[in-house]
Design a protein around this nucleic acid. Structure first.
Lengths: 160, 160
DNA sequence: CACTTACTGTTATGAAATAACATAACGGAG
DNA sequence: CTCCGTTATGTTATTTCATAACAGTAAGTG
């Protein structure tokens, strides 16, 4: 699946630094409070780990990175937090990678990704589902969720 | 993930019967011969299992169903066959289900699915990726593969 | 406070996929 | 036809991904 060049998400650094990270977490906490949901410590911790990353993170990476002194979390702790974060739209699961990213387009109602097979970056974009919606409607389907993941090489990895 | 009604892919029976199945397998074999690929016994067997099914099949279902007298296959046998079938376009993996279907639109170059969360049917359709392609190009991406999976309720399951 | 509901901690297990290496079948070059 | 590289298979074991089940804790409500 992965490409042959050895970049690792350098040309994009989506991962938030100290300050921005704290502000993002606080904003998430405020948003939760506003809608009567709780951004509890494990949930906040997992969101923090996602926001700090430059690329999609595997569940077991999060599990390993969870503790402050290197002690891992138990799998359900992280999976439950991820489920919550997805439900609230703070995170997305990338099916073709078995990995998770924080939501980078808070307003969007559907998420889609451009995934670089070389450096691992996953750029979220808001898709135009006009044609697909039409196809679904024609087939009599009532849609609930859509997964769109496009794989290839990002601009930075094409020359390599 | 699955819905609450208890249909199980009845209103569609995509699974091929005896005759059609044999013809489809022979056609696949002929196609392979024409392009210098080999539809060997394990590959043919897995394709047969996929073609006979009414819904996406999990790899371990195929493993269990593989033998004639109920003896299972070893996992690599089936995974390797699936890899081959995907490579040649005879089968598709549905990421959001961890499951596989035979290709129902032989000509198409990309596959997309409408998946019913109730009855489990996965209807393949040929998507119009105009907008997404534009987005990818704008971002400088060179695309290699696209996954599109739309989930909801099929016409037959909506009243239920 | 008593009660309900949501969340967390923990143990264990289940499901999905692949690594690694040995053996066998095919297909061309000589 | 026979040697040999390539492709495919068989087999064992392991790794990776995800959830079931249940006990305990914290928060919100009457």
């Amino acid at each position: 699946m992965s490409g042959d060049c050895h970049h690792h998400a350098e040309h994009d650094h989506q991962g938030l630094g100290e300050g921005a990270l704290g502000r993002a977490l606080d904003a998430a906490q405020a948003h939760c409070a506003a809608i009567q949901e709780r951004l509890t410590p494990p949930r906040r911790r997992v969101l923090q780990l996602l926001l700090a990353a430059d690329a999609p993170r595997k569940a077991y990476d999060l599990i390993a990175a969870y503790g402050d002194q290197g002690e891992p979390a138990k799998p359900p702790t992280v999976y439950r937090a991820l489920e919550f974060l997805e439900r609230l739209g703070f995170a997305h699961r990338i099916e073709s990678l078995n990995a998770y990213v924080p939501c980078r387009i808070p307003g969007a109602h559907v998420a889609a990704f451009l995934i670089c097979d070389c450096c691992g970056e996953a750029a979220e974009f808001e898709p135009d589902f006009g044609p697909e919606l039409a196809a679904a409607t024609a087939a009599g389907y009532a849609l609930r969720a859509v997964t769109l993941e496009a794989r290839g090489l990002c601009a930075g990895c094409q020359g390599a």
